[in-house]
């Protein structure tokens, strides 16, 4: 079967190198599957982190300029009122009201502008990791708004809970 002058090289090639190659290949496949799994979980966690941070920083920046805040605890709704200066007609400036609403409906937080219809979700709906809101609480003490937000990832079932506070300098009692 083997040629005389090959000196066992071909035999060695198939008997040693091929099984080694298969073993190495299996090992690499296992490791890469594990890594894909870790990567999937980590992406879901990044999404979770990013969403809680996004909602909280939006609330912080909106609250700092707000003239009035209405907090409803039943179906958690946070409404910020602003006084906007519109285009001048003649010599006098017109002022009008602007409203921004953070609203928790079921598992999502909606961010609405000038309306109370939940249309624009700012959490959930992410391809890399579905999340749901498990807690959205707020409390206003004088001119400080305390916000607590807890989100849970549907993929890793990790929970992240962050509390923060905003001082509202232009709040009118």
């Amino acid at each position: 079967m083997f040629r005389k002058n090959s000196g066992g090289f071909v035999f060695a090639e198939f008997a040693i190198a091929l099984p080694l190659l298969i073993l190495l290949g299996c090992g690499l496949a296992t490791v890469s599957l594990k890594l894909f799994d870790v990567g999937k979980n980590q992406l879901a966690d990044y999404v979770l982190e990013e969403e809680v941070h996004d909602v909280l920083s939006r609330i912080i920046y909106d609250a700092r300029a707000a003239r009035k805040v209405t907090a409803i605890k039943g179906s958690p709704t946070l409404t910020f009122n602003y006084r906007m200066i519109g285009a001048s007609s003649g010599s006098n400036l017109t002022t009008n009201e602007d409203i921004r609403v953070y609203w928790r409906v079921n598992d999502k937080i909606y961010y609405e502008h000038q309306t109370y219809i939940a249309r624009n979700p700012i959490t959930g709906n992410n391809y890399f990791g579905e999340t749901k809101v498990t807690k959205f609480e707020f409390e206003k003490v004088n001119k400080v708004l305390h916000v607590t937000l807890e989100l849970e990832s549907e993929i890793t079932h990790h929970k992240i809970k962050i509390s923060t506070a905003v001082y509202m300098p232009s709040y009118e009692n």
């Binding site: 890594l35 990567g39 980590q42 809680v52 941070h53 004088n142 400080v144 962050i162 509390s163």
Partner: peptide, 30 residues
Amino acid sequence: NALPRVKNPQSVLRLTAIHLANEQLAMIES
């Protein structure tokens, strides 16, 4: 692929700390 995962293990605690610092600053401001 595994290297950046090893390098950044504490991003969530960092985020919590940032919001905690924000809270403290808001209270000092008020």
